[in-house]
């Protein structure tokens, strides 16, 4: 196994995770085959995609959708599926 991971003497016992919120450090964006692209012209900021996103990858400020967090979006397409105005397109990654 790799290399720069800690050995048994240097990790918390019993599988305890002592650092809260460390899932953020794990970038899942490279799992993606299709990426969601939001057409801001059509978007009505209903926030349904934000509610449904399993990875909290829809970023919202002041009750408005600002962007997709492509570091963590796995490209599942749920946002596109639930969008009532069809403003999210799933485009193939290059």
């Amino acid at each position: 196994m790799s290399d720069n991971k800690n050995g048994w003497k240097d990790i918390p016992i019993g599988g305890m995770i002592k650092k809260a919120g460390n899932a953020f450090e794990y970038k899942t964006g490279d799992w993606r085959v299709y990426r969601p692209v939001i057409d801001r012209e059509k978007c009505i900021d209903c926030l349904l995609c934000w509610i449904h996103c399993p990875d909290s990858a829809i970023k919202v400020e002041d009750a408005k959708i600002v962007e997709v967090d492509y570091d963590h979006c796995k490209g599942c397409g749920i946002c596109a599926e639930v969008c009532p105005v069809n403003c999210i397109k799933m485009e193939k990654e290059n």
């Binding site: 196994m1 800690n6 048994w8 990790i11 016992i13 599988g15 305890m16 995770i17 809260a20």
Partner: peptide, 20 residues
């Protein structure tokens, strides 16, 4: 001091926990 018990622990760390 928030703490998580019982996470998923696959090929990368399970063995280390057994060694402990």
């Amino acid at each position: 001091k928030p703490l998580t018990y019982g996470p998923l622990d696959l090929q990368d760390y399970y063995f280390e926990h057994k060694r402990q």
